[in-house]
């Protein structure tokens, strides 16, 4: 069975902010405490964003775009799947930030 990170249940239904200084449920904390350990396991995993509709763009950029800045490779990114049951624009946006971070990294 694929590992799943249920953001609303395991992290917060009210995520906010980019850095730890911005609040308790910041993107930086989510990335460091949930996403990076999941990549370290080397197994496919699903990031389920359903259950909350309050993902600000800064949160998504820092959580997902920040993975590239933290040294996650494109090959490793293949392990991660992102979904939201109701709002397809949210995973789309997260993927867009990953792409942007990759091209910024390449330049």
């Amino acid at each position: 069975m694929i590992n799943k990170i249920d953001v609303a249940k395991e992290f917060s239904a009210r995520p906010y902010g980019r850095y730890r200084d911005d609040g308790e449920f910041s993107a930086q904390r989510f990335r460091e405490e949930f996403l990076l350990p999941a990549f370290e396991q080397g197994l496919p995993f699903l990031v389920d964003l359903s259950g909350s509709n309050r993902y600000g763009s800064s949160f998504l950029e820092e959580a997902f775009g920040g993975l590239i800045r933290d040294g996650i490779t494109q090959e490793q990114l293949g392990l991660m799947e992102i979904k939201h049951e109701l709002l397809p624009s949210i995973p789309l946006e997260a993927k867009e930030y990953i792409e942007q971070a990759i091209s910024a990294n390449d330049n």
């Binding site: 509709n53 309050r54 709002l87 397809p88 624009s89 946006e93």
Partner: peptide, 28 residues
Amino acid sequence: MLMCAELEICISKLNNYFDTKIYSQQIT
């Protein structure tokens, strides 16, 4: 954010009736 989520849900329901040509990209 809640308003944007509401908007996306409304548009997805409207797309059941018409082809509004509004996609997730515009909401993003």
